[in-house]
Design a protein around this nucleic acid. Sequence first.
DNA 1: CATGAATGAGTCTTCATTCAT
DNA 2: AATGAATGAAGACTCATTCAT
Lengths: 188, 188, 188, 188
Amino acid sequence: MNPYLSDKEKFKKIALLFSTRGYHNTTMDEIASTLGIAKGTIYYHFKNKEELYYGVITEGINILTVQLQSALTGTKSFEEKIRILISTQVDYIAEYYPLAYIYLRELYGNRREQLLNMLNNYLDVINDMLIEGMNEGAIKQLDPGIASSSIFGMVYTTALHYISLYKKLPSQLAKRNLEEIVFRGILA
Amino acid sequence: MNPYLSDKEKFKKIALLFSTRGYHNTTMDEIASTLGIAKGTIYYHFKNKEELYYGVITEGINILTVQLQSALTGTKSFEEKIRILISTQVDYIAEYYPLAYIYLRELYGNRREQLLNMLNNYLDVINDMLIEGMNEGAIKQLDPGIASSSIFGMVYTTALHYISLYKKLPSQLAKRNLEEIVFRGILA
Amino acid sequence: MNPYLSDKEKFKKIALLFSTRGYHNTTMDEIASTLGIAKGTIYYHFKNKEELYYGVITEGINILTVQLQSALTGTKSFEEKIRILISTQVDYIAEYYPLAYIYLRELYGNRREQLLNMLNNYLDVINDMLIEGMNEGAIKQLDPGIASSSIFGMVYTTALHYISLYKKLPSQLAKRNLEEIVFRGILA
Amino acid sequence: MNPYLSDKEKFKKIALLFSTRGYHNTTMDEIASTLGIAKGTIYYHFKNKEELYYGVITEGINILTVQLQSALTGTKSFEEKIRILISTQVDYIAEYYPLAYIYLRELYGNRREQLLNMLNNYLDVINDMLIEGMNEGAIKQLDPGIASSSIFGMVYTTALHYISLYKKLPSQLAKRNLEEIVFRGILA
DNA sequence: CATGAATGAGTCTTCATTCAT
DNA sequence: AATGAATGAAGACTCATTCAT
């Protein structure tokens, strides 16, 4: 983890730039002037643009993983766990939605493999949860990879849909709708 | 619609290039040599790289929209319609998954607005379907935008998950799992 | 051989630049403006600065090798051959002294190995000549590598000494002095 | 003379760096880490990179000059002097060959004038020797500059040829061969 | 004297776009 | 319509040098 990025303010500024303008349209000049430092200074902290980018993503995923793990501590019921999963993700997106855009973009871009590697720990937590749920008979017998990607896709797509519509994420509403669909589908 | 892209072979070649390498990493030189024409010739068919890119996306979305509309013709039951929606999308992704990657990437990138505009007709079909379903009492009272983006997110994320796992899309399996989750959620 | 360099005027211009300013102090901008073309055009003909540089050196060595071989055609006596070797080198330096500087610099720089490889054909001609001379008993029994590098060093150092002194090379004088020292040493 | 360079170990380390990597490819960072000091500290001892470089060269030439002068002390015969000149140079190159490479490179580079100035004292010694030899009738009537550059070129080129071949300089052999060629040429 | 983080001018290189043929 | 050589604006990256501590 690059120590430069533990300065949360700087971290968020860079994430916002990469998120709104995209990797290629974000120049090192822009980053430097956004941070109020000289361009060369960036290279003092990061080997190159790529490393800076991955640094931002890694930092963001770490925060997400830590938040989920701490929220899950001591949870018993499986349903509650899924609720926490949805809730944590929605809260995370509410605070770090620029990163959410980046994740999805890269998940469908040519850095997919790298991103999946970085998400490893996080996805493991979800996978374990789903396997446990299936063993308990609490949820359907589905490939856990499929189930988790379905949930992941729903949550992110829906949350970002709200954001692009309302410029902010109505967290409570989103959580309620998502829980409803996840647990019981769309049929009345 | 650019007539050059109605040559389905050329269309698919360019889509594959943009999909696997991304917009910025795909050079006009690569496109020219993939098509077996001179670089300058591209500019007789498209104003610039951007137009070429949008042309490819537009063409792809048109195909999708036509396929959905023709599949829906004469359908009565709402449940059947959702089934057709899922099925059409899965079939489309099976044939045009390079485009699927492009759509998702742009949906979370800085061309989101343009993409949503292009998807307008397609999304309208889905929206109408969902509103009809709610009026009939067949599905839950949800914001149709939310419902459609949830379904859309699930279908695409899940389908591309399969593809990245198995290099191909096991369509029947994907359709069955998706219908199950869409209609009844993940609870056993 | 890069066809761009067969234009002897351009070839000489670039060689002069690299020679007088050195590899690192010669910018691609300078080269472009010296040639009266755009910077990007250089990259149309050469992969990068390094290749351009090597292209110039290779072209120069080729000229040298061809000149020597054609001058040697039909020569019989060994002494005559050495005379021709000295004469050809002096004439070459008189016309291409910017390249002579480059060769020597690189011969003692970190491209020594590459340069020796490029000089391979040329050095072979000299080596063969010396071995023949030793077999005939015309010259002393010396390591041919040593003998040739001694002659080479003398000729170039001396010729460039004249040039830096008089801005031009007094060819006849240089040839006479060099033959004298090569054949009979400095003792009276 | 910069006192920092009288530490012979440091002096040799820096010379080796500049010699093997060249002026431009040697960074101040490399120099600092080779010396085990901080980059900024270099600037307490030398105004800039250029001065450091010239400092190294000057120090090296001083050593050479002192060695030659002390070796010549009390010598009578002219032939003996030439022998000492060759011998001293070969011994010097054996110990300081990284500097030998630097001298030759710069002699044919864009610092030629500066280098000749620094070599002034050394070249004067040789010039005086040759003029004396001509007056005595011991050697041929040649321009002393030509004679000295011929000898210089032969000795350095030959010595470095041996080094690049055997990774070390076989001093006795080199001296014998060089004396032979210098005094009597290459004819048998 | 020593440090090393910060600087920013300077360079190479890429690549979408143009245009004479 | 087609070509492909030429263009030049733009951007990543390097590194000698400075200066607050």
